[in-house]
């Protein structure tokens, strides 16, 4: 039998024997960023449609979580940096070819907007809230007058944030598993799905819950299609891409992916959501929690498996 044996004298920490430059920080951030993007997208969407009063959890309640989610995500990103004191270098330049530069600047737009959105709705949580200072009152008035403009900016920037979390990975041709342009739409769909799940989880209104359950069901369907599409693409591509797909089709990530992401994170919540919409009585929190869990697992598995996939030469 013909055999090829490769022996390398290189043993750099975090590079060899397998790449492990990104730990839990990046997948956690990608999950939180996608979740925040999903929540903010629906908040902006229902506001633009003039349905903010019909869907209060989507428009006002769920967005309160987003500054916290984004802050934790940004903290994780900062912890991931090896040269932390130089993080400000991200903001002395814009590099259009670098997805990470895009992401840094998108976060610079989305994070303040998420705080503004909360400030505009703070009386939903604290009815007696008073801004005290005239400048803040004037600012609130200004934002309220331009709510539609802000909603459109938020809609577009949250979509960019959601899709960028996938593009960040897909831009690396060195890691065949990540190097598929389907990853942007896939992570965006997953982010929107977790966002819808968070709204379902927080909503106290059956009509709203059913509306977002239907949206989530549709998103899960798209996600399953994109995942199958991704594997079909890999299997029809070059040897390294076939090997990347095999990490999930018999390789070391098979069980975790098909059990935690596909079965528990997509298939089971989809079945529970269908049953709920058909009128079966079951715990309302179960399906959305599974969707959130699946989304988190998906980011972790893609981050780790991607670093395990490589070119051989």
């Amino acid at each position: 039998m013909r055999e090829e044996l490769i022996v390398s004298g290189r043993m750099n920490r975090l590079i060899d024997p397998g790449l492990h430059i990104w730990h839990w920080h990046i997948p956690l951030y990608l999950f939180l960023g996608g979740l925040a993007a999903g929540i903010l997208f629906f908040a902006a969407l229902v506001t633009i449609q003039g349905k903010a009063d019909k869907y209060p959890a989507a428009a006002r309640l769920a967005p309160f979580a987003t500054p916290i989610l984004l802050s934790i995500g940004l903290l994780a990103l900062l912890l991931d940096l090896n040269h932390k004191l130089y993080f400000w270098r991200l903001y002395t330049t814009i590099r259009l070819e670098s997805p990470m530069s895009w992401g840094a600047w998108t976060l610079m737009v989305v994070t303040p907007l998420s705080i503004v959105w909360c400030a505009l709705n703070i009386r939903d949580i604290f009815p007696g809230w008073d801004w005290k200072y005239p400048v803040l009152i004037r600012l609130e008035k200004f934002f309220k007058q331009n709510l539609l403009t802000i909603s459109w900016i938020l809609l577009v920037s949250s979509l960019i944030l959601g899709v960028y979390t996938g593009i960040l990975f897909s831009a690396f041709n060195a890691r065949p598993l990540w190097n598929t342009s389907i990853l942007g739409p896939l992570f965006l769909t997953s982010g929107l799905s977790t966002g819808a799940a968070a709204i379902v989880l927080l909503s106290r209104n059956t009509a709203e819950r059913h509306y977002f359950t239907r949206i989530d069901l549709m998103l899960i369907g798209i996600e399953i299609f994109l995942i199958i599409h991704m594997f079909m693409g890999f299997l029809a591509s070059t040897q390294v891409h076939i090997e990347a797909a095999q990490l999930f089709l018999g390789g070391p990530y098979t069980t975790v992916f098909w059990l935690f992401v596909f079965s528990l994170g997509l298939l089971l919540p989809a079945i529970l959501e269908i049953l709920e919409l058909r009128g079966f009585s079951m715990p309302h929190w179960l399906a959305p929690v599974l969707v959130l869990f699946g989304g988190l697992m998906f980011r972790f598995i893609m981050a780790y498996a991607g670093q395990a996939s490589r070119w051989l030469y």
Binding site: L14, L19, H83
Partner: peptide, 24 residues
């Protein structure tokens, strides 16, 4: 100018880069 994000390390098909203990 390097923030030590690791993007270049992940992007290199030859794995020719490494994080220096000083961060960059």
């Amino acid at each position: 100018e390097c923030i030590g994000c690791g993007a270049c390390i992940a992007s290199c098909p030859y794995d020719a880069r490494y994080p220096h203990p000083e961060g960059y």
